[in-house]
Each structure stands twice: as structure tokens, then as C-alpha cells.
Nucleic acid binder design. Structure first.
Lengths: 240, 240
DNA sequence: CGGGGCATTGACTAGTGTCAACGTTCGTGG
DNA sequence: CCACGAACGTTGACACTAGTCAATGCCCCG
């Protein structure tokens, strides 16, 4: 049911990884890249809703999805539906908020089939002592993560439901574009219930606004896929 | 009207600074501490609502309050009342979310008279290359800041107004306790309007809940001062 | 074929926002 | 020193967004 990660993927070298430009060794010379390649763990792919990191376990790794969507949830134990704290696209480093803490504060799940790299934090910092570009990349990614959490915050701060839904779709579109994907048509492996949790709304409210957007020919969200027909319409809704 | 910071305070050495334990040079030996001391700028104190860092200016400094409260606001230009994005107590590093960006994304104001250290980021990273404890402290503080923004997020996520007000007071109390202050009586140089903005509520709603807490002998917020009479009452209100 | 989770839809309601009016405090300048 | 005004705090009435509840349909998976 759950990929434990004790087994490893057949080797996928950093050199040929599609996310290399967004990862720590982006600026490393060939020799050092192969050295970095050795310290990364590549567990077998995780299936839908399997636990990648469990809340409360000791902090050892940063994560990076080569493909798939990673969900951060408040507490995977409790029976009540998960609170969807955040989502991470491929190319976005996961787990930075545990740095300086002994244990991980929330759980991370695969939203759909996900190929993951685990980057041992201790080895990463040791590596950074010899390769300053990696040390610097870590600081840059933490700064970027702080700004991303700022946008996450603004998604639910001072906004009505229509705002939130439109801003959510625009934010996803923007982030995918940054990763070189098409911005107007993409997979979204989340249920409406999860979207509602992400936006701090009731599921019914999300449903009503999604149907409205569909009726107004602005965007279609169905079958875990998003199609944006009119960015102008979303921008109008997202205005404060 | 506004301290420009071009003049400097009479020297307040890091060695005798009350916030030293919470600052970057906490683990430095005497010699290096004096070297660090040289790179810190100490402008004249900032008065109430004066701008310490203006949104949009180039990123050059991290900030640390020796005393006083720093407010982070969405945009100091617009005429509409400021959105209070976050607040920082003495001992909490300010401005980390600009790391990796060329410009600062929001404005920082002094809530009341504030004595500030400006830490030039370029010099800090250079210093970090020779003194790994400083490099490490920077990573720890960014991790801590990510977790603090997580708490900030949870203050407005999935909570009703009574929750927010109670959690707000408890969070302040906890943070002050960490800085060695008494947790049940402290200054809070914010208007109810600013508290409302911080909690994403209408000012009237904040007022009603504060009066209720006063009537129930749980906590008193008046004259920019907070007195907590019954933590149990606050905890009950803060429960999800 | 059956069941469980998810999506859809309508009716109702509680909690907040909005608006308006008034009181209070504080700083400023006459 | 006092008068004034602006900003903030207080209070009540009202509107309205979004949450809750309930029922039904749909779809996927076993």
C-alpha cells in the first residue's frame, strides 16, 4: 500500500534530471555534480495519498519531487479530514521549515503518483561547506519559500470566496509557467474537498464558485484537470 | 519627523547587548564578536510609525530590534489603512523573506520608539564564510521564521473571531516568555484597528470580543497594554 | 452489482461585515 | 491653559456572505 522507500529507484542521475535547474546542484561543475548525485536518495515512487514524511518523525531530509504533487497536511493521524496546509509542485523544495528543529511538524503525502528525491540535510550542509554555490542555493530557496508562504497567506487573508478560488487558479497557473509548463491547462490531483480546505472554505462554497466559473466560460475544473478559458475573468475575480 | 539612520547611535557593543543570545554572534569567541560588532549599523532610534524599510527599496539589510516592536505592512504608500502582515518582537530577525530577491517586498515600521540594528546582508554572508556558527545561525533563523509564519498562518486559518483574538494574545504571551519577559502583563503598541487587520477581522468585531474578555475577567486590553487574568479562559477560547 | 466517497443542489442560519452615530482620548495650536 | 479636531473606541441595527444540514445523484473501485 505504501512505498517505504527502503528500496531505491533504478538510478536517475542528477545530470539528466529535468528539475536540475531548480535543484541545489544547478551551478555545480561536472565532477562535483556526480559527488552530489551520490548523496541523494531516490526511493520507489509513492502512490496516491501515501505518506512520504510523517508528522513527528525526526528531521533528516529535504524533499524534491521530480514529478507529482506533494501535499502538506496538518496531521495525518486524526480521523477528521486533513487540513491541506500547502502544496508543492515539482521543482519546489519541500521541508525547509524543519531546519533548526529536531522533528518534522507536519505530514507530507503524495497527491498522485510521485517520484521523489530525498536529500539528507546533514550531508547537504557538509557538502555546502566545500561548495559555496550549494550553500548559497539553500539560502536562496529558503528566501523563496518564505515569499511563497507569504503568497499562501495572502490567498486566505482579506479575501472573499470568489477571490480565493480565482487567485488559487491563477497562482497555480503562474507557478506551472515558472516550471515551463502551459499555464492554461494542467492536472490538479485534488478533490474539491481538498481545494476547500486549502482555501479555508466549505466544500459547497468551492463547488458553487467552480460551477459559476464554468457557466461564465472562465475556467473548467473537472476530472482533476483545470482548463482556463479566460484569464481576464479570473483576474477580475481575484482583484481585491 | 523620521530618523533617517544616517547618524549613528553612540556605540552599543554586541558584547553587552541584551539580545545577544538571540542574535547571529551568539556563539562567537570574543575576538570574532568584536569583528562582527564592526559590521553592524545602529541608526538613531525610530519614532512611532516611522518607516524603517520602505517597500520596493533594494534589499541590503536584515533588521533586529534591540527594543520596540516592528510592524510589517502591505504597502506604506496607499491611503487605505495599512494591512498589518506581521509583527516582530525584539530578538526576532526581520527581513529574511527578501533573501534571494533584489528588492524588499513590504514595508517595515516602528510601532513605538524602536532601537534597531541593521545587519548588512552581503557582509553577513561574507562573515559567515569564515565563521560557520554565523552561517549556521542564519539557516536556523530562517527555519524558525518559516515556522513562525506557519503559526501566523494558523492564526487566521479555520478559526472564528473568538479563536483568533484568544490565540493572538496567547501567541504574544508565549513569544514574550521565550524572550524572558513576564507572560501575563505586557505592552502592546497597537490600536484595535491594527489588531483587527492583523487578525483579518473588522475592528468592531475585535472590540466586541475584547470587551467580552474583559467582562468575563479573562484578559484586559487597554491603553496599549495587555493584562491576562486567566490563561484557562484564553485556552478555552483558542481551542479549535 | 453494491458501497463509499465525492459532487451537486436547495433551504436555512449563524457569525461577521457594514453602516451610522456617539463618546473618548490625545495632541496641537491659539 | 483651554479649545478644537482628528483618530480611535464603543455601541446598536441591519445586511449578507459563507457555513451547516440534508437529500440526491454520480462515479469509481472492489
Amino acid at each position: 500500500m505504501n512505498s517505504t522507500g527502503s528500496q531505491q529507484m533504478p538510478h536517475v542521475s542528477c545530470h539528466f534530471c529535468g528539475q536540475r535547474a531548480f535543484c541545489f546542484p544547478s551551478a555545480l561543475p561536472r565532477q562535483a555534480l556526480e559527488s552530489f548525485d551520490q548523496l541523494v536518495e531516490r526511493p520507489l515512487p509513492f502512490e496516491h495519498d501515501s505518506v512520504i514524511v510523517q508528522s513527528g518523525e525526526p528531521f533528516r531530509f529535504l524533499l524534491m519531487a521530480r514529478s507529482g504533487l506533494i501535499k502538506q497536511v496538518a496531521d495525518a493521524d486524526s480521523k477528521q479530514p486533513h487540513q491541506l496546509l500547502d502544496i508543492y509542485l515539482p521543482g519546489e523544495v519541500v521541508g525547509l521549515e524543519a531546519i533548526g528543529d529536531t522533528h518534522v511538524g507536519s505530514s507530507f503525502l503524495a497527491a498522485d503518483k510521485a517520484f521523489i528525491c530525498r536529500i539528507p540535510y546533514g550531508k547537504l550542509t557538509l557538502f555546502g561547506l566545500r561548495h559555496h554555490s550549494v550553500q548559497k542555493a539553500l539560502l536562496l530557496k529558503m528566501g523563496r519559500q518564505l515569499r511563497q508562504r507569504q503568497r499562501r497567506f495572502e490567498l486566505i487573508y482579506g479575501r472573499c470566496a470568489a477571490n480565493k478560488v480565482a487567485s488559487f487558479l491563477l497562482d497555480l497557473s503562474t507557478r506551472l509557467k515558472q516550471q515551463g509548463k502551459v499555464p492554461d491547462r494542467f492536472a490538479l490531483p485534488l478533490s474539491q474537498i481538498e481545494i476547500a480546505s486549502y482555501l479555508d472554505l466549505a466544500p459547497e462554497t468551492v463547488n458553487r464558485h467552480l460551477r459559476r466559473l464554468k457557466k461564465e466560460r472562465v475556467a473548467t475544473v473537472a476530472n482533476r484537470e483545470v482548463v482556463i478559458h479566460a484569464f481576464a475573468g479570473l483576474l477580475a475575480d481575484a482583484k481585491r
